[in-house]
């Protein structure tokens, strides 16, 4: 069972990094205490993982045939990639890291021609459409909810609504995160037959929750401050649009990046308000993350498999 440690580590890193996307705004603005935010994140991540996490676990676990050893190498490669890129302060997606690593394993095992091109195309298209989809959802939410919220005249009601909204969207965001990203942590081991899907969902969910509780403060504050530059309604729309996007991808069984969904949602707010919310540097970093994360993870898994296998 110690094989699972690499998956647990990946889940911990994921929780530490991505809790910021759901409660960053609430915490930095002081509306939600850090303690409450991480406890809610942990609860809803586990709930999302256990309830719907198996939908994406299938995609990661059965992308290619995995043995216990290759599952370990894939998860380890993804974990190293995530750690390395976080150290280099580069944007990183665990979904892209684990799938990149699994593709690397598949290339070594079955060659280029053996790659499941249908599944791969679906996944890559989903990655491209994550920020785009989030942008569309964010734009529609901003216009639709904005119309309704503008009808609320009182500052007191507006403030209550925003506060409740931040709590509810944060919980939904955590649920979506758990349901979608839990596959990245233990999916490969489910594919290798070490554990059952529901066990994978539970172990992965708990490890993400522990990551959020123990190590998310720093990222939460930096991401939260960036999103908090938006007005509270826009920040709420960003979190909600990101959560809806990620949740929709859970339904089609593809793990995607919550951070990239947030970037798309923020860009759409800029478009709706006629202001620039995303600069070229940020876009460049997203593109860099898209390309470098799966490439690095794939290269690592190939390297590890060839040298150890």
């Amino acid at each position: 069972m110690w094989f699972l440690l690499s998956g647990i580590y990946l889940g911990w890193a994921l929780g530490a990094n991505d809790a910021a996307n759901v409660f960053g705004t609430g915490v930095t603005s002081g509306l939600v205490s850090y303690r409450l935010a991480v406890i809610l994140t942990a609860i809803f991540v586990i709930l999302g993982a256990v309830t719907e996490g198996t939908k994406c676990i299938g995609t990661v676990g059965y992308f290619t045939s995995l043995t216990l050893f290759t599952a370990l190498l894939a998860t380890l490669s993804a974990a190293i990639t995530v750690t390395l890129m976080t150290r280099l302060k580069l944007p990183v997606s665990t979904s892209q890291a684990i799938l990149g690593a699994i593709v690397g394993i598949a290339i070594v095992g079955e060659g280029w021609r053996g790659l499941p091109m249908g599944k791969l195309t679906k996944v890559v298209l989903c990655w491209i459409f994550t920020p785009l989809g989030a942008a569309v959802i964010s734009f529609l939410l901003f216009m639709g909810l904005g119309y309704l919220v503008n009808r609320i005249r009182g500052l007191a009601v507006f403030t209550h609504l925003m506060r409740i909204g931040i709590l509810v969207t944060g919980c939904f965001g955590a649920y979506a995160l758990g349901s979608n990203n839990v596959a990245n942590t233990t999916g490969a081991f489910v594919g290798a037959g070490l554990i059952a899907p529901i066990e994978g969902a539970l172990i992965g969910g708990i490890s993400i929750g522990v990551g959020a509780i123990t190590y998310s403060r720093g990222v939460m504050i930096s991401v939260g401050r960036r999103i908090s530059l938006l007005d509270p309604f826009s920040a709420l729309v960003v979190v909600l649009a990101g959560a809806i996007t990620v949740y929709l991808y859970t339904q089609i069984g593809v793990p995607v990046s919550t951070s990239q969904a947030v970037v798309g949602a923020v860009a759409a707010i800029g478009l709706a308000k006629g202001i620039r919310t995303i600069n070229k540097k940020m876009l460049f970093f997203v593109l860099l993350g898209w390309i470098s994360t799966p490439l690095l993870a794939a290269s690592l898994s190939i390297l590890l498999l060839l040298s150890l296998g």
Binding site: T28, G30, L31, L155, T159, S228, P232
Partner: peptide
């Protein structure tokens, strides 16, 4: 200052 208001306001 205890933080019980929307930061915007």
């Amino acid at each position: 200052y205890e933080g019980m208001y929307l930061p915007l306001f």
